[in-house]
Structure formats: structure tokens, C-alpha cells
Amino acid sequence: MIIIDSKLCKGCDICIATCPKKVYSKSDKVNTKNVYLPFPENEEGCTKCGLCELSCPDQAIYVKKEVE
């Protein structure tokens, strides 16, 4: 499962561009700072490589690793 922390995200879109599996797209939801949050639209495609977590400048992404 992918969790975006809406309090930390600044909407830079780096996760959208970085994910090799094109998991993210821009959502139409905004946070309290009027930032459009990313949304893991194609979550089934995620390989849990962790690249988005490493590339998010605001530590706003959590990719849950264990099987639920």
C-alpha cells in the first residue's frame, strides 16, 4: 500500500516523473496549502522498489513493504 502524507507533500511531482512503473498521477485533491497531491492510480504496477520514497524531497511517501 502507498500512503502519501498530505501534511508534508508540497506537490513537486518528482514522484510522478521518477517512478519507473508510472504508478502516480496528479489527483484533483488539494491539501490545506492548496497543493494538488499525487495519487497512486496504478498501484498494482508497483514493484516496491522504493525509488519514490528516496526521491521525495519532503519525506511524504510511504510504500508499505510487507504483504497485508
Partner: peptide, 11 residues
């Protein structure tokens, strides 16, 4: 600022 590289370097 949004998208600044500093946060990536921290990670």
C-alpha cells in the same frame, strides 16, 4: 521550497 533537491540529498 517545493521540489528543492536538499530533501532528496537528506534521504
Amino acid at each position: 521550497c517545493p521540489g528543492c533537491g536538499n530533501g532528496i540529498v537528506m534521504n
